[in-house]
Design a protein around this nucleic acid. Structure first.
Lengths: 162, 162
DNA sequence: CAGTTGTTTCAGTGAAGAATGAAGTAGCTA
DNA sequence: TAGCTACTTCATTCTTCACTGAAACAACTG
């Protein structure tokens, strides 16, 4: 298996960044960081290295690394006798992305439930919202029947590497 | 069942609008329109009526009504001997919202597949992206096992009311 | 042909926020 | 203590975009 070229990797990173920006409202640079850290070698990288790779300023890196860490997508890693902080993506970062999307749908379902209560689902005027509400009932069912997430099998060995 | 007060309705509309703006990147006013049309009485309303209800300018209404129509969330309705155009939400508008979210996740899954191909999922450096990829495999399975959408039962009787 | 009504276009305003350079801070080394 | 080096904060620039008022437009009525 040939090593991927830097260009190929950056192309892929850019797709990820675009996705994050478009659908998650994340800053472009945050998306690039996330993308880069999922394919780079080695997995842990300093802010400076990342900045160089994706072509962003250090200041931006500070801001966005904090953002990603606070949401729990990244973990930090320090090495003895070295002031540099290394960052790496959590193994289940992307799972969190998915979970967040699913949860947001769930919350929309709750709003619909409230709406139905508000206008009375049985009346004529409730037809539209009743249709909407059914969709979320369907969604609930889909996830109720779902197999457990893959991460359930993986212990949370992220972070701790004693 | 008591009629909901205008205030209650507007409060609910605002929740919907916030959701749409936050997670779908829709303009606030578009979200308000969508929300209002989901609970208003009667279901079909003129641009002027909507503008009055949600407190927006007619110009904004034009813009956002076109936006919502182009995405297929609204349908238009005219009455003989009346120049006014009435708008109403499609019965499956909210289903489309859900579908769009799901599709966006699917597309993310494709990006991950490409990424794994890029770095080689078997190598050490592929551990992170392999974990990500598994999540999307899981997602696929979840929807593969899913019951059909409720709209499959409902004929598309929107639009046509002969 | 005027007059009325409903809708659309257009240019402008304001606000939000991404990204940066430069200055500042903190920790290690000699 | 002086001098690096890694990182952070701050103030600023720049862009984007929702929203609006005013004017233009189109269709119908008498």
């Amino acid at each position: 298996m040939a090593e991927p070229s830097r260009e190929e990797m950056l192309g892929w990173v850019e797709r990820i960044a675009k996705y994050c920006a478009d659908t998650d409202g994340l800053p472009l640079i945050a998306g690039r960081i996330l993308g880069w850290l999922t394919v780079c070698d080695p997995p842990e990288q300093s802010a400076a290295e990342i900045a160089e790779a994706i072509g962003a300023s250090r200041a931006s890196l500070t801001t966005n690394l904090r953002l990603l860490s606070s949401v729990g997508f990244l973990s930090q890693l320090t090495k003895p006798g070295n002031r540099t902080v290394y960052y790496q993506v959590d193994d289940d970062a992307w799972e969190k992305v998915v979970q967040r999307q699913v949860e947001s749908l769930t919350s929309l379902g709750e709003i619909m439930r409230d709406g139905m209560e508000l206008v009375g689902g049985s009346q004529k005027r409730g037809a539209r919202i009743r249709a909407a509400h059914e969709v979320f009932g369907w969604l609930d069912k889909v996830f109720a029947n779902a197999p457990p997430l893959p991460s359930a099998g993986r212990a949370n060995r992220t972070q701790k590497e004693k």
